[in-house]
Structures are given as structure tokens and as C-alpha cells.
Design a protein around this nucleic acid. Structure first.
Lengths: 333, 333
DNA sequence: CTGAAAGCGCTTACAG
DNA sequence: CTGAAAGCGCTTACAG
């Protein structure tokens, strides 16, 4: 292993001079010396020891990505999570950061991992609303949350307009003449209840309120069960809003099993606009969110906060849009 | 920040004693002292500094997961990669390891990240066949490859019987009376060319060789293009083997566009047996690989090698199996 | 512009 | 069973 000491000896300077060159503190080292040191470091294949740097400078260049781990499903098998993580890993290393990924069940693990590695900052994926206050007070580093509906005011967060997403879905159904509708998704979480609220409010103000019986808890109940319930209902919904594209895919499959046709017998709107929505037959009408932009903004805020810890917190709400495809039929009453 | 020193002072012992207790070197510390130190550490909320430990002990407790980054598609948006990574992250932290994830375009980055963080070991996802020799010689730590068809003999690798997978697909088609078949996938990689070879060999020995024209490069050409080519062919293939389930999904979509029915007009077999294959309509017949087992074996070998660097390398080949669903029709000639 | 000293929080190796 | 010393590879803070 090549160390500063080895280079210093070769170059006939002190390790401080080498250290300065390696950290690009130009102006503090004469150009000739800098050039020479750089050349020798290159020749010897010098690679800085991050642990030593982290220890001495109290600056680890590690960003932790924390994902909530639920037993039922691996966090990285949720397409949204893996897409988001993938984007982040394409951005931050360009700024010299390394990414550590942690799944947490118990939130006290968070502090352990962050402190143990002296992480410089962290990005949170999944619902941590109830623990945010505690996490914040335990860890005095930049923490960027995503999709949080916590009422803690001073947090950095990047989310989308879930409420508006619900509205858009309702408006789309209404404009195609649908008046009796249904909703399916994991209702308990903040994100989803906003989508439901937007959906429900828009229907309400159009005079076609969403009934309680047509608010279905998925995946607690299977797509097929929910579908059969819908088909037996009176009045019978003609459209179903599902809170993600991969969930919607399961309803396509259930529809085939029940021998009903999309959109003829039931229209469908999804959420996310993932690649799968184009692939479904018929292609899925869905509410688009811009994951790429979301990841970029998350990294930007993190990088800002790292430079400038005192600046005001940001709670971003990105817009969503309707991507219209073929899963909503024209309803002529 | 609480350090060994703080605890030592409180407990009235030296930091060495505290260090021994923290590292569970039982038998080297009197039970009473150990108990007392443990209690005080707990009370003070002690969290070991991993950087300091890494520096002093030359043992970082970091495992790097290296994914090949191609510009066209984010590595974590390939369902196989994110599922595999997800499994690994559920296993290794239980042994005290932290996971760093790196995307690499240029393989010289690998050595930089591994050495800079003094990683204890690394797992590779994606094709590194050509660089394996170099990576090996640059990094004298346990490196576990996956799905490698490198001819370097002494490497740890966990793969599956891709050749057999191809055979199984062929046998399934043949047993349902199909004799004119087609193949689609990214042919250039080792994994895929094995699947192709197995498929092609099995057809050959059954007297129904796969024609060159029916070996399609996907996704270089789109599913729709390939499908149209197949439909125009004479003789016209009745079955298509696609090298992954998510690719197969695109052929379902293309089939709908071309107004042909699966499996009536074209039968399909996929690969992986991902959740999506159950959701497709009709459900996809596919070659199952056990990702969970693959991840477990990868971690087991890594952990073994970490304990016992000298033990012989392992190159595991896991079995695959046919999962029969509804996308292959009975062909009566 | 350059360097000697001290120290980051821990472990290794030795002495008792 | 316990501890004093030295050192891991780097940076901070100071002196010149």
C-alpha cells in the first residue's frame, strides 16, 4: 500500500506538502512541487485511505441510503425504490461520495449505522414519518427525506403532489363519462392516503362521491378478490384507480382470470408511469411522476446542505401529470 | 461522541480493557469488569468508530457490490440486479458488514473504490469476464463473481446452468409439438450465448435445427420489428424463446399491436420466473432460476473466504427448472 | 510556500 | 486478567 509517506520520501518533501497537493489546495504549494508530487503519486499508484481521512478530518464522504424494510417484500423489489436508488448512485459518486445502503426494520439501527461510519448525510426511502423527529435529533447531519407527510416543519424533503395525482385520475375518469368509481391501494401510508383524498375530493365535488365500499385495501386483499367484489357491486364501478403501475398489472391479470376486458368492462388508471405501463395490453393510462427529477433534486439539496448547513430547509413538491394511453374507455351513459 | 476513552475513565479501567469487552474477547477480561464496562457503554450510548477500527485493524467490515454500468439502462432498473442486491443486503449486515454499492463503467474504478475504503470483499453483478484476471491481480481480497463464463479457473463464482435452461425451453416447445422456433436476446454476453447454445443444440439433436435467421438480437431490434420478421418468415416459427421475463413482456405488448394472439399464433417461453411472469396474460411459461438461493450461496462463499482465505475456490452452478404456465400451446401438426 | 508536532479513535504486540 | 506504548494514514493548527 502506497502512503503519503512513501510519496513524500520519493519527492523529497514532507507529507504535508503531499497532502496539500492531493487535496488540490492550489496556491498553497508551488506549481513545480505540485507537478512533481502529482507525477510521483501517479507513478506509484497512490490511492488515498478513506478511513484515515475520515478519522482525521471527521469527513467520511459517505452518504447512506436508508430503506425501510418490511418483512413482506424486499425493498429493492419495489420498482420505485430500485429506480430511485439507481439514479442516486449515478449522481453522487461523481462528487466523490460513496453510497452505503442500509435496510432498517428498527429505526434505532439508523443512528448506529450513521454514527458508526460517520456518514456525511443520508437519504430516506419509505415511510419514516413517525420517527422523523427522533432521527433528526439523534443525527446532526443533512438528512433528506422523500415522500414524507410528516408534520415536522424543518425537514428537507422531496415529494410529489400526490393529492393532485388523485385529482387527475378522477378528472380523467369523469371526462370520459365515468361516474361510479373505485380505488385500490395500501391505504395506511401518507402518500397513498393523499392520492386517495385527491381522488375522493375531486369525485365528491363533481357530485359523484367515492363510496366507502369501493375503497379497497390492496395488497391486503388480492386483486382477484377486489375485482370480484367490484363486479358484484350495485351500482357497479366502471373505473378503478390503482396506486402504482405494478399493482395495476395484477389487476390486468385478475381481469383475465375473471374473463372481463380492460377497458370495456372496467377502466383502469395507474400511478408512476413505469416502463411496464407501456407494455401492458392495453397500454395503461397512468399518473406520471418524474423519478429522475426527484433523484436529481434530492441530490442537489443534499449537496447544498453539505456545503451550507445553515441554509433554510427545503420541502419540494414536484408536479405530476396524466399520461393517457388506452385503459380508460369512453363511457356513454 | 463517546469514545473508548470516555468509557474507560468512567469505569476506572484502561481503554484496552474496554476495547476487549467491546470486541467480545471473553476469557480475557474478568466477568465482573466486562459486565460493568458493558453497562457503562450502554448507558453512554457508545457506538464504535468504524473508520478508526478500519484504520487500526486493517479490517473495514465493508463489502462492495460492483455493478456494471451501461449508459443505455440503469443497472438497478434491471429487475434481476435489484432483486439480487436486495437479497444480499438482507443477509450480510446480520454479520456486521456494511454494503457499499458502486456502478462502474471503467474497470479501473473498481480498484480505486475497493482500496480506498479497504473493502473486505466484493460481489460482482454483470459481465466482467474480460477484466477478471486484472481485477483479481489488483485486489487481493475475496471477490465473488456471478454468472461469469470467464475461463480464468481459480475464481469464486455463482452461476446457473444457462445451457440447461436453453435445453429445457427447447424440450418444452418440442414436447408440445413445435418444430419451427425462434430466439431473441442480447446475444453477445456469455450467459445469453449459453442459453442460446443449449436451446439450439437441443433443437438440432431433435432434427429441427434453429435457423440463423430466427436468432434475433434483442433489444437491438425492437420486439415489434422482430415479431413482424417472424410473422413474415417461411417457414414461420410457432414458438419464441426470450431470455428474460421482462423482455418477454415486451413481446406480449408487440403481439397485441400486431394483433396476434399468445399462444394461439405464437407460443412464448421466458427466463427467470419473476413475479411479472405470473401477471402476464396468459401467464408466462418460463425457466426458473432461484435468485434467493443464488444470493445465499454468494454470501456463504464470501463469508467462508473471509474466514478462510486459503480454501479452494468455488464455482457453483445452480440448477434451473421449467415453470409451465399458459404461454405455450399444444401444436397438432 | 513548507514542515514539525499533535491527534483523530481504535488495535496490535508486548510486558507483567 | 490488565495496561503502557506504538502505530494505522491521514488532517488540523501552528510556526516560520
Amino acid at each position: 500500500m502506497v502512503t503519503l509517506k512513501d510519496i513524500a520520501r520519493q519527492a523529497g518533501v514532507s507529507i504535508m506538502t503531499v497532502s496539500r497537493v492531493m487535496n488540490d489546495q492550489q496556491g498553497k504549494v508551488s506549481p513545480q512541487t505540485a507537478e512533481k508530487v502529482r507525477r510521483i503519486a501517479e507513478e506509484m499508484g497512490y490511492i488515498p485511505n478513506s478511513s484515515a481521512r475520515s478519522l482525521a478530518a471527521r469527513s467520511s464522504k459517505i452518504i447512506a441510503v436508508i430503506l425501510r424494510d418490511e418483512p413482506a417484500v424486499n425493498p429493492l423489489e419495489i420498482p420505485y425504490n430500485s429506480a430511485f436508488l439507481g439514479r442516486i448512485i449515478r449522481i453522487l459518486p461523481a462528487y466523490g461520495y460513496s453510497i452505503m445502503v442500509h435496510f432498517v426494520k428498527d429505526f434505532s439501527d439508523i443512528t448506529f449505522w450513521l454514527k458508526s461510519w460517520n456518514a456525511q448525510g443520508a437519504v430516506f426511502l419509505g415511510i419514516f414519518d413517525r420517527e422523523i423527529r427522533q432521527i433528526r435529533s439523534d443525527n446532526q447531519i443533512p438528512l433528506i427525506f422523500t415522500d414524507s407527510y410528516s408534520n415536522v416543519r424543518r425537514i428537507d424533503n422531496v415529494g410529489i403532489d400526490d393529492y393532485r395525482g388523485g385529482q387527475l385520475a378522477a378528472e380523467c375518469f369523469l371526462s370520459h363519462g365515468h361516474t361510479c368509481l373505485a380505488f385500490a391501494g395500501p391505504i395506511s401510508t401518507g402518500v397513498i392516503s393523499e392520492r386517495l383524498q385527491g381522488f375522493s375530493d375531486a369525485l365528491q365535488s363533481a357530485g359523484h362521491p367515492l363510496s366507502r365500499e369501493q375503497t379497497h385495501a390492496f395488497p391486503d386483499r388480492s386483486a382477484e378478490e377486489i375485482l370480484r367484489t367490484i363486479l358484484k357491486s350495485d351500482p357497479r364501478p366502471t373505473g378503478l384507480f390503482v396506486t402504482s403501475d405494478d399493482f395495476a398489472a395484477e389487476f390486468y391479470s385478475a381481469a383475465a382470470k375473471c374473463r372481463i376486458s380492460i377497458p370495456e368492462d372496467l377502466s383502469l388508471i395507474g400511478f408512476d408511469d413505469f416502463p411496464i405501463s407501456k407494455t401492458l395490453v392495453p397500454p395503461l393510462t397512468t399518473i406520471r411522476q418524474d423519478i429522475d427529477e426527484k433523484a436529481r433534486q434530492t441530490c442537489r439539496i443534499l449537496l447544498d446542505r453539505l456545503k451550507n448547513p445553515g441554509s433554510p430547509t427545503e420541502n419540494l413538491c414536484l408536479d405530476v401529470a396524466l399520461t393517457e394511453r388506452k385503459s380508460v374507455k369512453e363511457c356513454n351513459p
